[in-house]
């Protein structure tokens, strides 16, 4: 069946993407999650302005592109990861995947259309970002800088890592509930590992009980291993690149994100082919 279909049929991808994007835009999720992320940014901004109010001075490199933008990206990344993680498993769960695969749809076109839909959803959110931060700049005079534009552009690639990660999880699971549980669990575990490693590093090895010392070593090894697997580390690298203002790090962050996304999309296609439409 799949031999008759092209590897990436443009028309198929277009139709599938349009169908999914339409349903995403007509739902409340995209708007609600964007509002939540903006409320969080507004909260941090309020605190920042409160700090300036208290001290009458603050010296920092363009705050909007750093600590006010990335919290929003984290929330939206999580939402899009959950969306992409259920995208394959829901179609499989409901049986629509089987019907689609009887038509002109193959694994590559299906996964790619899902990826494209989530990326387009994020690009719509990017428009919201521009509008929101332009408004923030006008209200507070913090300045809409080139740094912020660079951060927003980089975020497209960082979010791509999360979306492809969600698709990868989705291709592995057969049920929507399991996909969500795995994504929430992995998301939580990665954050716990991120903070746990920081906590254990801040302790002296001589002060630790032997058990904690071994655990510290193990967590460090896991962290190193996860460094190239976790989309969180790509986000962290991207945030560093923007904060440091290094063009080299910025470029490398984009390159790493593209490689990561491509690898996970290929893996997702491969797994979907292996597991078949019924899982």
């Amino acid at each position: 069946m799949s031999k008759e279909k092209g590897f990436l049929s443009t028309k198929t991808i277009k139709v599938l993407t349009r169908r999914d994007l339409g349903s995403a835009l007509h739902g409340w999720g995209i708007y609600a999650v964007t509002v939540i992320s903006f409320l969080l940014s507004s909260f941090f901004l309020g605190r920042y302005l409160g700090g300036i109010r208290e001290n009458n001075i603050r010296i920092s490199p363009d705050p909007l592109s750093g600590f006010f933008f990335f919290p929003s990206v984290i929330i939206i990344s999580f939402y899009l990861t959950v969306l992409s993680s259920v995208s394959v498993s829901r179609e499989r769960d409901q049986g629509t995947l089987e019907i689609l695969f009887y038509g002109p749809v193959n694994s590559s076109a299906f996964i790619f259309s899902k990826y494209l839909k989530e990326m387009l959803t994020y690009l719509i959110i990017v428009v919201f970002f521009f509008a929101y931060f332009w408004g923030v700049s006008g209200l507070t005079n913090l300045g809409f800088s080139l740094g912020l534009v660079k951060a927003i552009f980089l975020s497209i690639f960082l979010v791509s890592c999360w979306i492809s990660f969600g698709l990868f999880i989705s291709s592995l699971t057969s049920r929507v509930r399991n996909s969500i549980l795995w994504v929430v669990g992995v998301f939580g575990a990665l954050w716990a590992l991120y903070f746990g490693q920081g906590l254990l590093l801040s302790l002296s090895t001589e002060e630790m009980p032997a058990f904690l010392s071994y655990m510290g070593g193990a967590v460090s090894v896991i962290y190193q291993a996860v460094w190239w697997i976790s989309p969180l580390s790509y986000l962290s690298r991207g945030m560093d690149a923007v904060n440091v203002g290094s063009l080299w790090l910025y470029g490398m962050s984009i390159l790493y994100s593209i490689i990561y996304s491509v690898v996970l999309i290929i893996l997702s296609i491969f797994i979907l082919k292996r597991k078949g439409v019924r899982g």
Binding site: Y31, L39, G46, G135
Partner: peptide, 12 residues
């Protein structure tokens, strides 16, 4: 700074 919260709800 308070107007920022009002600005946040424009996507809604």
């Amino acid at each position: 700074s308070r107007l920022l919260y009002a600005l946040s709800i424009f996507p809604l």
